[in-house]
Structures are given as C-alpha cells and as structure tokens.
Amino acid sequence: MKRIVWGLISLVIAVVAVGLVIFGFSKQQYQAPTGTVAAKSVGTIQYQGMTRDHVVLTFGTYPDSQGKYGTMLAAEGAASTPGGNVHPGGNPSWPAYAPSNQFSVPAGAYVTVVWHQYDSGGAVNDPYFAQVHGTIGGTETVNGKTITGVDANNMAHTFTVRPAPGTASGFFLSVPSPVSSLGNNAANNAGGQTVTFSFIAGAKGLYAWNCEYPCGLGIGGFGAVMGSYGYMSGYLHVV
C-alpha cells in the first residue's frame, strides 16, 4: 500500500514537472493585460504605397496623477481601467501618464499619437532625448508647429519606446515634449501643449516605453516616480 502511495506521489510530481515545462514553453505569446488602452481605429491610410490601418492613441502627462486622470478615463471611454480616479501606482502627488500606462496598437498600423502635456520640466541629461527619433518624417507637431526637437534645457517628458527583450525588432521611438505654457506653475487643467506625431507600429510583441527626462526625486532625478513602475513607464503592446 505504502509503495503504491509513494509511486503515485512520484508520478504526480513527474506530471507536474512535465506540465510546467510545457507551460513554460507555451507562454511565448504575450497578450495585453486588462486595463490596456487600445488605440482607436479611424479607418485606413495610404503610406508609401501601402494601405495601412490608421489608429489614434491619446494620452496625457499631468503634474500629479489625481487631477485630470478621471476626466481622461471618461474621455477615452476606458471605464474598465482599474483604479478609478486615482492612479494605480498609489502615489497621487506624483506626475504620471494618463489614462493608463499600458497601450496597445495593431502591428504594422499607422499610429497617430495625440499627447496633452501639462507638466513642468527642466534640463535633460542627454540632449539626444530632446530630439525626435523614429517618427514618420522625424518630426513632431507642437500646437500646430512642426519641429524636430525641443529645448534640451527646458523640456518636460519623453515618450521613448523600445522592444522588450524577446521581441525581435529594431524598433525605436523617442519623442520629447515641451513644458507647460505655465512653466513652473504647471496645473492639471491649464497651459496644456498638444504634441502630435505618427509612427508605423513594429512587429507583434511587447515593447516597453518610459520617460527619459529625469522627473523623479533624489540625486539625479531618477528616484521615486522614475524608479517606480506605472507613472513614467509602461508597456506598448503591439498585437
């Protein structure tokens, strides 16, 4: 009897081990989690002789993650986003991207981003990030003016995207934003700058985005909000 019990236990362990191996290999394909804001489809567009899906992705950056956050949620119709009025990160006085830190776009689509920027800023460590990289035409449009970069000594945030390891792609995108027109008195509801740019989404897979302007606390500005997941960082799911 004892032998049979032990035999069965060994068998169960072996099955679990094999199951884990299969599970480990099967989890290759990554899916966007719930709470992800999907870009809105606005039809198709001709780009370089190819017809592509045209989608629009809207988000904003705010001096704190309380103010406009709820409004943005409503505007985006993203009622299912968990956390309601407060940013999921749980630190309402920190600046954040809204309405979410997780975005999704279709692979190969022509993506137009509309970015409402309300935060203050300062000088960036690496002037490289004051320049636009990887957009269509290498430009962005700020309040209707097309530019290839912003003032490296007075900028707010960047939207910098790279493939996560495991996503085979040479994709790279980095777009800076100018500071709020209210400067250091930035508020959640006034002085906004509208930044628009377009890019062609890369291959299917997971991409990480983060802000490269050190808008956090501590020496170097990379503490707190920059070192914590969810405010100045997140994922772009290309599905």
Binding site: R162, A164, P165, G170, A208, N210, M226, S228, Y229, S233
Partner: peptide
C-alpha cells in the same frame, strides 16, 4: 540599474 534594467539591450 533600476526599473527597466532588463530592457537595456542594444544591437
């Protein structure tokens, strides 16, 4: 080097 250390790959 912090949050996205794992993603600090280059070609």
């Amino acid at each position: 080097c912090g949050l996205y250390h794992a993603y600090m790959d280059a070609n």
